[in-house]
Design a protein around this nucleic acid. Structure first.
Lengths: 344, 344
DNA sequence: ATCGTTGTCTACAACGTTGTAAAGGCGTAG
DNA sequence: CTACGCCTTTACAACGTTGTAGACAACGAT
């Protein structure tokens, strides 16, 4: 049975509230009392019951982090970072897996989870813009991904269009001209896919390379298998591409495998680039050129925003009712073997 | 402001306790009352405050799952499964990252986290057997990994020795004779490394293949980089191996990369096998032969054990004071390209 | 001496929930 | 018609914590 304030109070010969005051750093306590209480705390091994404290305070101390799934290394890494960042601020993270289901994403933004939460951080996949209107207005929401969706939610993301443009410019830079993109999601407007494919197109346009719709390959999901399938399709085209930009690293890994299985040399015949910089990509054969979002910065910013919305003590920005914020995290292009060397 | 029992009670014109009774499925309630209450619940959108409930019940509803880090795909996948399994039983999982630090593992088994928890599931890395003696006896502990450590903790694991033996037997079966193992951890007795290297040795002995200590390579950690380093070492040996069993898939991925960088053909010159069956291994080039532990079964068993210890209603086994249990989860050998084909 | 101030401590209620015990209604047996 | 028992509902206290408001002592100023 863990010690309570009552136990400590009895041992120190003071009231419960005095112990509470010591614990909370209340100022007006004599050194003698404080010391006595602190000794009693040490002796009993007292640690506050956060459940009770939060009940009293009307808070829960919980942030939900909802990601599609932990199987995905990008989200796994991000989750680890969010947990760490949250810990630093005394928050506890509840990890929720949406499986990319719209229903489960809605459950998060309407705070329908079993636990009461103070804020939610969501990495949306299936959500439609309208869903945000039904969001629980009492629970601050931070969306990971760009602010294509209007509504009362903060956003944290890298500049996906610019990042995609950067990769494709790199592909152009090494002399490629037929540059495909894997990862279009025709159904979903304003999603990540739309932004990254837009970046692809911008880079082509800027370089005066004609845009060939046949080289824009849609996928069901962003898994390795989808990348492999899409790549297989590209390779049997009458005029196959000499480079492929994949909207995430998993697609790229799948694409590289499909290429290898068909005897296509990467990067000599087809260069491949990804997006996310998962660890897998630095050890793949060949290692994968990719966009590395600053995941730590994203995690930090997301937790920071949630924190500020919940506890709007600090000045001005981030307060309860104030305008949604947009945080742009940095990114970097990592050139590796999968795009090494010039044109074939 | 979320609705409380009080709000529902007022609306339904009954007492708070009656609403509570309806919520908890108490039997003796007239259909009329129940219906009225349920309507009020629906209208107010009431959902129980688990914090308050658990405070009252002396429970928290939380299980800590402590893994080294979510960067590691094996633990990420496992974490996802544990969260799902726990959800099914109305538990909430708090994910803790120990970073393989003994201190942080101790913090878990002594329940020193900020949140009060009902049980802990720990995947130990740095823990020493003695540490278990100082474990908080009030908090059921489930260790992921074999029962090499005595003490009041349940264990869930596959038979690591048998699994390792199985892989190595497979390597022998395809004609390899100089079979190295990467992943020894000389300092740590009784850990996973010891079991898997033991399986390696058993297979060699059973096949009458002489045991060459030069082919047993220790590593600092179980990361890709460690595997690469170890493989580089093996390849510059006067008599390099014709097969390598890596104690986990990350080591194997690193080893394959190191091999490829040195122009070694895998599996023709050196066959490589791993352990864990992370998704990465089915798309690597070549794809990775590995031991696939039944992760879902492990997650399920771990949560089930924790559940039974906390709530020992069911008969006999798993009760509060009863003997620690050992659950053996199934595993399977997955033969893939990295060990395809017979001897060189 | 009296008053107000300041500093230190505490009693009480409340957060939302459930276990306990008992109250009320109603039917049935005596 | 009373007494008993059963079914249904309720009041109260408690889980561990903190905000509010007030008690009390010591102190200086009037």
């Amino acid at each position: 049975m863990p010690a309570t304030l009552k136990d400590v109070a009895e041992r120190a010969g003071v009231s419960i509230k005095t112990v509470s005051n010591v614990v909370n750093g209340y100022a007006f306590i004599t050194d003698a009392t404080r010391e006595r209480v602190q000794r009693a705390i040490a002796e009993t091994g007292y640690r506050p019951n956060l459940g009770a404290r939060n009940l009293r305070k009307g808070r829960t101390g919980f942030i939900v982090l909802a990601v599609p799934e932990l199987d995905n290394p990008y989200f796994a890494e991000l989750t680890g970072l969010v947990i760490t960042a949250a810990h630093r601020r005394q928050w506890t993270v509840l990890v929720e897996q949406t499986q990319g289901s719209r229903e489960r994403e809605q459950a998060v933004i309407t705070s329908m989870g079993p636990q009461r939460i103070d804020a939610a951080i969501l990495s949306p996949l299936a959500m439609e813009p309208d869903d945000l209107l039904s969001a629980d207005p009492a629970t601050p929401l931070v969306l990971l991904g760009e602010r294509d969706i209007p509504g009362p939610a903060d956003h944290v993301a890298i500049d996906n269009v610019a990042a995609a443009r950067t990769v494709v410019e790199h592909l152009i830079g090494i002399g490629r001209r037929r540059i495909a993109v894997i990862g279009d999601q025709p159904g979903k407007n304003g999603g990540t896919a739309a932004l990254r494919t837009a970046g692809h197109r911008q880079a082509l346009d800027a370089a005066g390379i004609p845009y060939d719709p046949a080289l824009v390959v849609p996928v069901e999901n962003y898994q390795r298998a989808d990348g492999a399938e899409a790549m297989a399709h590209l390779l049997q085209l009458p005029e196959p591409p000499d480079a492929v930009f994949c909207c995430n690293d998993l697609l790229a890994i799948g694409a590289m495998r499909a290429g290898a299985e068909r005897g296509v040399s990467i990067p000599t015949q087809v260069a491949i680039a990804g997006f996310d910089d998962i660890a897998e990509g630095s050890y793949s054969l060949p290692s994968l050129t990719t966009i590395a979002p600053d995941k730590a910065a994203i995690a930090e910013a997301a937790v920071d925003l949630a924190d500020r919305r919940v506890d709007p003590i600090r000045g001005g920005r981030g307060e309860k009712g104030s305008e949604p914020e947009d945080v742009r995290a940095p990114f970097a292009l990592k050139v590796r073997e999968s795009t090494a060397g010039a044109v074939r």
